[in-house]
Write a protein that binds this DNA or RNA. Structure first.
Length: 493
DNA sequence: AAAAAAT
């Protein structure tokens, strides 16, 4: 029980109010040590309750003392803006009984609000490295009063090249501090960081990273190489999955995301798009819609591969085989969370042979191909439709059978528009330049469009799309040709 | 063959 971990009554009551009774293994293991002000090295992935394992003890410890202007008492580093925002939400949820100032310092949004919070005296600063350093360089933020320093998703920070930034930040922080350090894996660069910046850490390990995959049914799916063939394969897979409640579709390239997003939208799917070149507000809105089940599918880059805490993803579709075998594990780790079963499909073209081999090498076993084994629903439908799905009824009509019984009541409870209960609207498509369809695809788009009777219009005017989302963000720019903004410092050769 | 993060 949470009240046995040594957390303060305020924290315990907030946790209970949030509906939690039993700590997860990482929480049970890490919280008592964190409360004793020990350094903690936590080996765990998201979905294990990792965030609460540092947020709850931090709230307890912060009850003593007060923040001074520009001198935060705690600092949390996150690799992506979404993760940082998620941690802020966690402080809001568990900190309802506290009067704490929490500042979220991430890029892509204005400095004003951030500066105000810092000046007021932030108890908690949650930041991505770039924006944090920006504040530091402007002299707006002083770190000498930091009592607790949290590094989350350290291995991902490594992948993203943030290690030098973390080292810089560590050197500014007071030596007398508590460090809570989380990483799903321990490559040697991370071990070195831990050795240098943690003091006698208590090592808390929940589950080896590979075990995340065990509740997930993984299938590889052969497909032709052209985008059209891949999109056909994907639609067939999605339509064949009767138990699909929601799913993430991963693309390797940002520029493919917009194309695929629009294609799915045209085919009547409830879909959103998420990648790092989209403006921050749209990113947040889209993620929110997905979490709240307002959209069923999310076409995303690897920005969504790790860490995002979306508790209920039933399916992962890899539209592309990921470049790194490790990314594969992270992507499929978005489903099958918290003991739930999940399904992951990876669309693979003949050109992807080497990447598949790399994944097999890492998994230490062969992957299973959809057409080689006992048929999940998708295979049957693939066989039936002979690779073309034109004859199928338009989606959005056959709703009743799409979800398993477990989800049925949730759906009913939140269905706002009787005519289209599950077909919630997609948020406004991202308007960033990378979302423009490549010219080569324009032709095939037109052909896709030929599907005769799509229900799209029906959910265009459903009531719960905030009106501002449908307005353009800024005056229309002339057709973007981005090749002109090349830097003058480009080296020769 | 990529993505992410400061402007």
């Amino acid at each position: 029980m949470f009240n046995e971990l040594g957390l303060s009554p305020k924290v315990v009551s907030a946790v209970e109010a949030a509906g939690y009774t039993k700590p997860t293994p990482i929480q049970a293991a890490a919280i008592p040590h964190a409360l004793e002000k020990k350094d903690v090295l936590g080996l765990a992935q998201t979905g294990t309750g990792k965030t609460a394992s540092f947020v709850l003890p931090m709230l307890s410890l912060l009850e003593k003392g007060r923040a001074r202007a520009r001198m935060p008492r705690t600092l949390i580093l996150e690799p992506t803006r979404e993760l940082a925002a998620q941690v802020e939400e966690s402080f809001e949820k568990y900190g309802v009984n506290h009067k704490l100032t929490v500042a979220l310092l991430i890029g892509g949004v204005s400095f004003e609000e951030q500066n105000r919070k810092i000046d007021r005296g932030a108890d908690v600063v949650i930041a991505t490295p770039g924006r944090l350093l920006d504040h530091l360089e402007r002299g707006k933020l002083l770190l000498q009063q930091v009592e607790i320093f949290v590094v989350d998703e350290a291995d991902r920070m490594l992948d993203m090249g943030f290690i030098p930034d973390i080292e810089r930040i560590c050197k500014i922080l007071p030596a007398k501090r508590q460090t809570l350090f989380f990483s799903a894996t321990m490559p040697k660069e991370i071990v070195s960081l831990v050795d240098r910046f943690l003091k006698d850490p208590v090592r808390v390990e929940v589950s080896p990273p590979s075990s995340a995959a065990e509740t997930v049914t993984q299938r590889f799916v052969r497909s032709g190489s052209t985008p059209k063939e891949k999109r056909d394969t994907l639609r067939r897979l999605i339509r064949g999955e009767k138990e699909l409640s929601n799913g993430i579709i991963f693309c390797n390239r940002k520029r493919d995301i917009g194309t695929l997003f629009r294609s799915l939208e045209r085919h009547g799917f409830s879909v959103g798009a998420l990648h790092g070149d989209m403006d921050q507000r749209t990113r947040m809105m889209t993620l929110d819609s997905f979490k709240q089940d307002k959209i069923t599918l999310l076409v995303a880059s690897d920005v969504a591969a790790r860490g995002l805490d979306i508790p209920k993803v039933s399916h992962v579709f890899n539209y592309d085989v990921p470049h790194n075998a490790e990314d594969y594990v992270h992507r499929i780790g978005r489903t099958g969370r918290a003991g739930r079963s999940g399904a992951a499909f990876t669309i693979s073209t003949p050109e992807d042979k080497k990447l598949v081999a790399a994944i097999e090498a890492m998994l230490k076993r062969e992957v299973q191909w959809l057409d080689d084994d006992a048929p999940p629903a998708a295979q049957k439908s693939a066989a039936r439709s002979g690779g073309e799905d034109r004859s199928r009824p338009p989606r959005g009509r056959n709703r009743g059978d799409r979800r398993g019984p477990a989800e049925a009541e949730t759906v009913a409870a939140q269905a706002p528009a009787p005519s289209q209960p599950q077909q919630a609207p997609a948020p406004a498509p991202a308007r960033s330049k990378s979302d423009e369809a490549p010219r080569s695809d324009r032709g095939s788009r037109r052909r896709d469009r030929r599907e005769p009777d799509e229900p799209r219009v029906a959910f265009r005017d459903t009531p719960y799309v905030p009106a501002f989302l449908l307005r353009p963000l800024s005056p229309r720019k002339p057709a973007t040709t981005t090749t002109t903004r090349k830097s003058t410092t480009e080296p020769v050769g």
